[in-house]
Design a protein around this nucleic acid. Sequence first.
DNA 1: CATTTATATAACAATCTGGTTATATAACTT
DNA 2: AAGTTATATAACCAGATTGTTATATAAATG
Lengths: 110, 110
Amino acid sequence: MMTIFEALADPTRRRILDLLREQPRLVGELVDLLETSQPGISKHLRVLRDAGLVSVRKDGQRRWYELRPEALAEVDGWLQPYRHLWEARFDRLENLLDQLQEEEKNDGQT
Amino acid sequence: MMTIFEALADPTRRRILDLLREQPRLVGELVDLLETSQPGISKHLRVLRDAGLVSVRKDGQRRWYELRPEALAEVDGWLQPYRHLWEARFDRLENLLDQLQEEEKNDGQT
DNA sequence: CATTTATATAACAATCTGGTTATATAACTT
DNA sequence: AAGTTATATAACCAGATTGTTATATAAATG
């Protein structure tokens, strides 16, 4: 079975999630919005479902697919210990830029 | 070329990043710490390098691989518009649990 | 009831992935 | 200089992934 990370690796699946972020959608809507055959979309939806990223609700012959954003907390959790590392770097970059700007101002005054 | 999301899909590559989070490492160290052949590790490192997730520094015949955490900001950025969605859900769950606990307390008193 | 519609699954082909072994390359060591 | 060490790349293979077409299934419709 696919992990969340593998599920997110495919760009079409990420687009599906982006579309479901706005609202639940029928399979047919997603087929119209993306350029992949209906069976292709159904297969992607199954992967997303198995990974816990979406849920389905039956409505007669239709299927409403809905985002389950909680599933993304796992990715966020993995990312967590890295966050301060890149934020620290951006802070340092910002400081450097501030400093350069400061120096330039001083140059202008001499 | 592989995107960051594809690079992160492989568990061995995620472990490499986790190890580099602590400190820069030589290829040989990673080979010892993970159970994959040296060429296997080198191939993963190339993928990570192409994705911008690590950088290399030559040191004689050795190569120090170092984490480039800024690259992960892209993943964080993709995740960003989802964050409030799952946080809202967790908040609601918390409220529900509080409420249940409250009701239980009241039941005890009757 | 026959037909159409919405979706899922099967079967298949092409490509990609991740691993391995063998080999190349360049830098140390003796 | 010859041998050893660290790493990268080539060549290859098995299995996975993604896409397609054909088909199954169940619900809606005339």
